[in-house]
Deep mutational scan, measured.
Amino acid sequence: DYYQTLGLARGASDEEIKRAYRRQALRYHPDKNKEPGAEEKFKEIAEAYDVLSDPRKREIFD
Rank of each mutant, 00 (worst) to 15 (best):
D1Q: 09
D1V: 03
D1N: 11
D1T: 07
D1G: 04
D1L: 04
Y2W: 05
Y2H: 14
Y2Q: 05
Y2S: 06
Y2P: 07
Y2G: 01
Y2A: 05
Y3C: 00
Y3E: 01
Y3R: 00
Y3K: 00
Y3N: 02
Y3L: 01
Q4D: 01
Q4G: 05
Q4F: 15
Q4W: 07
Q4C: 14
Q4A: 04
Q4H: 06
T5K: 05
T5L: 11
T5E: 06
T5F: 04
T5V: 11
T5W: 05
T5Q: 09
T5M: 10
T5H: 15
T5G: 03
L6D: 01
L6P: 01
L6C: 00
L6H: 00
L6K: 00
L6G: 00
L6M: 03
L6E: 02
L6T: 01
G7V: 02
G7T: 02
G7A: 06
G7P: 00
L8W: 00
L8H: 01
L8N: 01
L8F: 00
L8C: 13
A9I: 09
A9N: 09
A9G: 03
A9Y: 02
A9C: 07
A9L: 08
R10I: 07
R10L: 08
R10M: 07
R10T: 10
R10D: 10
R10G: 05
G11F: 03
G11T: 12
G11K: 10
G11C: 06
G11R: 06
G11A: 04
G11M: 04
A12Q: 02
A12L: 01
A12M: 02
A12N: 01
A12P: 01
A12K: 01
A12D: 03
A12H: 00
A12F: 01
S13G: 12
S13V: 05
S13N: 12
S13C: 08
S13A: 09
S13F: 03
D14Q: 13
D14G: 07
D14T: 09
D14C: 14
E15T: 11
E15C: 08
E15R: 06
E15I: 08
E15V: 07
E16M: 07
E16A: 14
E16L: 05
E16D: 11
E16K: 04
E16C: 05
I17G: 00
I17K: 00
I17C: 03
K18R: 10
K18P: 00
K18F: 10
A20Q: 06
A20C: 09
A20I: 00
A20T: 04
A20R: 03
A20W: 00
A20Y: 02
Y21S: 03
Y21N: 03
Y21I: 01
Y21A: 01
Y21G: 03
Y21H: 04
R22N: 09
R22M: 12
R22P: 03
R22W: 10
R22T: 08
R22I: 14
R22L: 15
R22Q: 15
R23H: 15
R23V: 14
R23K: 15
R23N: 15
R23D: 15
Q24F: 10
Q24L: 10
Q24N: 10
Q24E: 07
Q24V: 11
A25N: 10
A25Q: 15
A25M: 12
A25G: 11
A25H: 03
A25W: 14
A25S: 08
A25Y: 14
L26R: 12
L26S: 10
L26K: 10
L26A: 09
L26G: 14
L26N: 02
L26D: 11
L26Q: 15
R27A: 14
R27E: 14
R27K: 11
R27Q: 15
R27P: 07
R27L: 15
R27C: 14
R27I: 13
R27S: 13
R27F: 13
Y28I: 06
Y28S: 08
Y28A: 08
Y28K: 07
H29I: 06
H29C: 11
H29Y: 08
H29S: 14
H29D: 06
H29L: 13
H29V: 13
H29M: 14
P30Q: 15
P30C: 11
P30S: 14
P30T: 15
P30M: 14
P30V: 11
P30A: 12
P30K: 12
P30N: 13
D31C: 14
D31W: 13
D31F: 06
K32L: 02
K32Q: 07
K32A: 04
K32I: 03
K32T: 03
K32H: 01
K32V: 04
N33D: 07
N33L: 14
N33V: 09
N33F: 03
N33H: 13
N33C: 15
N33S: 15
K34I: 05
K34V: 04
K34L: 05
K34Q: 07
K34N: 02
K34P: 05
K34A: 15
K34R: 10
K34T: 07
K34M: 03
K34H: 14
E35R: 09
E35D: 05
E35F: 10
E35Q: 10
E35N: 08
E35C: 13
E35Y: 09
E35A: 05
E35P: 04
P36C: 13
P36A: 13
P36L: 11
P36I: 13
P36Y: 07
P36G: 05
P36W: 14
G37K: 14
G37D: 05
G37Q: 11
G37E: 08
G37A: 10
G37F: 12
A38I: 10
A38C: 10
A38W: 06
A38Q: 10
E39T: 12
E39G: 09
E39Q: 09
E39I: 11
E40A: 14
E40F: 11
E40W: 12
K41L: 09
K41G: 04
K41H: 08
K41S: 07
K41D: 04
K41C: 07
K41M: 10
K41A: 10
K41Q: 08
F42G: 06
F42M: 05
F42W: 13
F42N: 07
F42C: 04
F42H: 11
K43G: 13
K43S: 04
K43W: 08
E44P: 07
E44Q: 09
E44Y: 04
E44R: 12
E44N: 15
E44M: 08
E44T: 10
E44I: 08
I45M: 11
I45D: 02
I45H: 02
I45S: 04
I45L: 11
I45F: 03
I45N: 03
A46P: 01
A46N: 15
A46E: 15
A46Q: 04
E47H: 07
E47Q: 08
E47R: 13
E47K: 12
E47I: 13
E47G: 05
E47Y: 11
E47D: 12
E47P: 00
E47F: 02
E47A: 06
A48Y: 02
A48S: 03
A48G: 02
A48L: 00
A48V: 00
A48T: 01
A48R: 00
Y49L: 04
Y49W: 14
Y49V: 06
Y49T: 05
Y49S: 05
Y49N: 08
Y49C: 04
D50P: 01
D50M: 10
D50T: 14
D50V: 13
D50S: 13
D50F: 06
V51T: 15
V51G: 05
V51H: 00
V51E: 10
L52D: 02
L52Q: 01
L52F: 02
L52V: 04
L52C: 01
S53Q: 06
S53H: 07
S53E: 03
S53Y: 03
D54P: 01
D54H: 14
D54K: 10
D54W: 01
D54G: 05
D54M: 04
D54E: 06
D54Y: 03
D54I: 02
D54C: 11
P55Q: 08
P55V: 08
P55F: 03
R56Q: 08
R56D: 15
R56F: 12
R56G: 12
R56E: 14
R56I: 07
R56K: 11
R56A: 12
K57H: 09
K57S: 07
K57L: 03
K57W: 00
K57Q: 10
K57I: 02
K57M: 03
K57E: 09
K57Y: 02
K57P: 04
K57G: 05
R58K: 06
R58P: 04
E59G: 06
E59M: 05
E59V: 07
E59A: 10
E59Q: 04
E59W: 02
I60G: 13
I60V: 14
F61A: 04
D62S: 09
D62E: 09
D62M: 09
D62Y: 06
D62N: 07
